[in-house]
């Protein structure tokens, strides 16, 4: 049951991305192009999502626990460190180059544009590399103790 619910929640996310127009990289890069073909649509996507999530999270998080899990798993760190800013900075450069971030890129797979089939594998390689590097760093720190 939990698996079917997660399929439905993913479907809602993917349908939302498709309706919002964010599966089209040109709309994303035009949003970032303040000095040129500026298209403010992405701000409305973020705005719509943040308003619903801001209210919805408050309604959900007063409950004792999620339906299918023993507790809510929320990030607790409040530290703005170099790693966060470096990661976000690199992410933004790639995002500006191609107009794809992870959600829209995956949502676009079925739409069949050739560029998607180059971008998505490269993105997965980047993700695995970051996890391995992070894990290697943790191992080194552990070994140094």
């Amino acid at each position: 049951m939990s698996i079917l619910i997660q399929l439905a929640i993913g479907l809602l996310f993917g349908a939302g991305l498709a309706i919002s127009g964010m599966a089209a990289p040109a709309k994303v890069t035009n949003f970032l192009d303040l000095a040129g073909q500026f298209d403010p649509s992405l701000a409305f996507v973020m705005g719509g999502a943040v308003i619903v999530a801001f209210i919805g999270f408050r309604l959900v998080l007063v409950r004792a626990r999620p339906v299918f899990a023993p507790s809510f798993n929320l990030p607790t760190s409040r530290t703005i460190d170099r790693r966060l800013l470096l990661g976000a900075g690199l992410f933004g450069i790639g995002w500006g180059l191609a107009g794809f971030c992870p959600g829209p890129a995956l949502t676009s797979i079925g739409l069949g544009a050739p560029g998607t089939f180059i971008f998505v594998p490269a993105m997965l390689v980047g993700m695995v590399a970051a996890r391995l590097l992070a894990q290697g760093g943790a191992t080194v720190a552990f070994a140094a103790k």
Partner: peptide, 13 residues
Amino acid sequence: IAGLLVGFGAVWG
């Protein structure tokens, strides 16, 4: 290049 940066940066950050 963009895919590598997006994937690496998103996980690193």
